[in-house]
Design a protein around this nucleic acid. Structure first.
Length: 406
RNA sequence: CGGGGUGUGGCUCAGUUGGCUAGAGCACCGCGUUUGGGACGCGGGGGUCGUCGGUUCGAGUCCGACCACCCCGACCA
């Protein structure tokens, strides 16, 4: 993609209403545009990052047998009355007229879909997921993409004939979540937490970060971790698992998995016949990842004074190619990269000073920067450097493409 | 939803005790000079000063209501 053709308008100034690092850098870099509190549009650059995250999640969900489907934003009141949540979630659910609401989550609808199609233990276990927009009327939206009123989420729901089967799948999902976040470049803690809307305990995936809203207690040695909202421990206590010291850390919750038991299957009459011909309520679990929140979390933990430092797996482009002094060599390299399917953002703009191109490249944060200029050509080729590193080297143009291809 | 703060070109802001054609920087358009860390000169375009009402000879400026955004709290599937 040529820089002169893509809709990016970087800005030097921090937006007056940017309340967080992610809002500031993503806005300045041209990834997002705020429309109102908690509502952001993904611009072409932001959408590219979002798609990378989405594809990683989709791939991993498919690997553990998740079947993708797409449910609805508009939710009928009658369904939510069945589960008894129409009144309960009134605060977070946007209403459209008197009988319709905008979906903040989809337990009701997935249960409705499954109960009308599955009536035998032979069809279980099963897991269904979607990647879709959610609406939650947050009393106070804040922190850019971290707490929005409209946001993108992957939510999966699993159905089982018994608790044991559910538990095995739950653990499998937890493992897969770890893998997903690690592929995205985020190190997570697996944290015991309250069930929030559902009342039971749940497990959260937290990224330790000073700008996080949550406070978690973690063991310095082992993997013990609890959210302070449910923990009886405090910083300095002994770890109940290994006896080491517990410390508290601020963190961002990017994923949350819940055992739902038979809460929805019972209230909504989602039953199957088991092997003995006995009618039982299905056991359910639900598993969420906030995609836009993940995007924000990456920025919160991976940036420097000059801008974002994207992990390669979710970077909008792998390479940021910069041409100085208008030269045909850079054009040729660009064409070759495109031909070889290497994602490249080519800063081909004339009448833009070198400093401005460098500043833009740092702000946008692609992992690899290549400069082709009179100076670089005179020293033997192209200058290549990694975002976040001061080091750079000159590489012959003939070798450049192969180096980038792997 | 309680307490506080802020609303002035696309962005960041200035605007004195109310005073006549509302400013700067960035961005944008034109011409020229520049070209390895957010260049410079000259010339341009772009504004219902959040909205509505009030006070006044006169309101960006004072008063009231409302709206929006931000902060602290409550809330957070």
């Amino acid at each position: 993609m040529k820089r002169s053709q893509i809709l990016i308008k970087t800005q030097k100034e921090i937006p007056a209403d940017a309340d967080s690092i992610n809002a500031s850098l993503l806005t300045r870099g041209g990834f997002i545009q705020k429309e109102m509190a908690g509502v952001y549009a993904l611009l072409p650059l932001g959408l590219r990052v979002y798609r990378k995250i989405e594809n990683i999640i989709r791939e991993e969900m498919n690997t553990i047998g998740g079947q993708e489907l797409l449910m609805n934003v508009l939710q009928p009141k009658v369904l939510w009355e069945e589960s008894g949540r129409w009144g309960k979630v009134a605060d977070v659910m946007y209403r459209v007229g008197t009988d319709v609401g905008l979906a903040p989550t989809h337990e009701e609808q997935i249960t409705d879909i499954v109960r009308r199609r599955i009536s035998s233990y032979k069809d279980l276990p099963a897991a269904y997921y979607q990647i879709q927009v959610k609406f939650r009327n947050e009393p106070r939206a804040k922190s850019g993409l971290l707490r929005g009123r409209e946001f993108l989420m992957k939510d999966m729901y699993s159905f089982h004939e018994n608790e044991d089967d559910f538990k095995a799948y739950y653990d499998k999902v937890a493992e897969t979540y770890k893998k997903i976040f690690s592929r995205i470049g985020l190190e997570t803690k697996y944290v015991k937490a309250s069930g929030g809307m559902f009342g039971d305990t749940s497990n959260e995936f937290q990224v330790i970060c000073p700008t996080g809203e949550d406070v978690i207690l973690i063991c310095e040695k082992c993997d013990f971790a609890e959210n302070t909202e449910i923990s009886k421990l405090k910083s300095g206590d002994k770890c109940p698992k290994c006896g080491s010291s517990i410390k508290s850390e601020k963190a961002i919750e990017i994923g949350n998995i819940f055992p739902l038991g038979d809460k929805y299957s019972k209230s909504m009459n989602a039953k199957i016949l088991d092997a003995d011909g006995k009618e039982v309520a299905m056991i359910m679990g639900c598993y969420g990842i906030g995609l836009t929140r993940v995007m924000a979390a990456v920025v919160e933990v991976s940036h420097d004074n000059n801008g974002i430092v994207w992990p390669e797996s979710v970077a909008p482009f792998k390479v940021n190619l910069i041409s100085l002094n208008k030269n045909s060599e850079a054009d040729k390299v660009y064409e070759e990269l495109i031909r070889r399917n290497i994602e490249v953002l080519y800063d081909d703009r004339d009448e833009i000073t070198a400093g401005e191109k460098f500043a833009d490249a740092d702000l946008i944060g692609c992992p690899i920067r290549i400069i082709i200029s009179e100076k670089s050509l005179a020293s033997g080729g192209a200058e290549i450097s990694k975002r976040g590193s001061q080091d750079s080297e000159i590489i012959r143009i003939s070798k450049l493409i192969n180096k980038l291809a792997n």
